[in-house]
C-alpha cells in the first residue's frame, strides 16, 4: 500500500469518526471541537487531491473563523450542561425519517457519479494550485464570481444593519 493510500484511509476513518462524534456528543462544546477535527480531516483529503488552496481556505474560513463564532455563542449562552431535556419520542422518529430521506437522496444522486470519481487524480495535476484557480476564476467564471461577491457584500451589509438596530 502506498503512502497516499494509507493517508487516505486514515483521513477517511478520522473524518467519519469525528463526524459521528459531532452528532452523538451530548456536550455542545465537544460537538464543536469534533466538527473542527472533521474540517481538518477533509482538508487533508483536499491536500491528497493537490487542491492546496481549497485545503488552506477550508481551514482559515471554516475551522478558523466560523467555528470560533460557534464556540462564542455556545460559551456565552452557557450551553455546557451535559443533561439536556429529554426529547419527545415522535420528534426522534421525525429526525430519523428525515435524516434517512436525505441519505437516500444523496446515495441516489451519487451512485451514478462513480465513473467520475475514478478519474480524480491523486498527488498530481495542478488544477488545485492558486495560479490555475485564479486564471480560471477571472477568465471563464468571472461573471459568477463577481455575482457571488456582490451577494456576499449585500449579506455583510445586511448583517451590520441588523446588528446596529439596538
Amino acid at each position: 500500500m502506498s503512502i497516499s493510500a494509507i493517508l487516505f484511509w486514515v483521513l477517511s476513518v478520522a473524518a467519519l469518526f469525528s463526524a459521528l462524534m459531532v452528532v452523538t456528543s451530548r456536550n455542545p462544546i465537544h460537538s464543536v471541537i469534533w466538527l473542527i477535527v472533521t474540517f481538518f480531516a477533509i482538508s487533508g483529503h483536499y491536500i491528497l487531491l493537490n487542491a492546496q488552496f481549497l485545503a488552506v481556505v477550508n481551514i482559515i474560513v471554516y475551522a478558523g473563523a466560523i467555528m470560533v463564532l460557534f464556540l462564542f455563542v455556545i460559551m456565552l449562552m452557557n450551553l455546557n450542561k451535559e443533561s439536556e431535556p429529554a426529547r419527545h419520542r415522535w420528534l426522534q422518529l421525525a429526525g430519523g425519517v428525515s435524516g434517512g430521506a436525505l441519505l437516500l437522496v444523496l446515495v441516489a444522486a451519487l451512485k451514478d457519479t462513480e465513473l467520475k470519481s475514478q478519474q480524480s487524480l491523486m498527488l498530481e495535476g495542478n488544477t488545485g494550485l492558486i495560479k490555475t484557480l485564479g486564471q480560471e476564476l477571472f477568465s471563464n467564471y468571472v461573471i459568477p464570481f463577481e455575482l457571488s461577491s456582490i451577494l456576499f457584500l449585500s449579506a455583510m451589509v445586511g448583517a451590520v444593519l441588523i446588528g446596529k438596530k439596538d
Binding site: Q52, F53, A55, V56, V57, I59, I60, A63, G64, A65, V68, L129, I130
Partner: peptide, 15 residues
C-alpha cells in the same frame, strides 16, 4: 505553493 497562507491558517487556528 501556499506558503504564507499556511501561516495564516495556523494563526486562525491559534485562537
Amino acid at each position: 505553493d501556499m506558503g504564507i497562507l499556511i501561516v495564516f491558517s495556523v494563526v486562525s487556528v491559534g485562537v
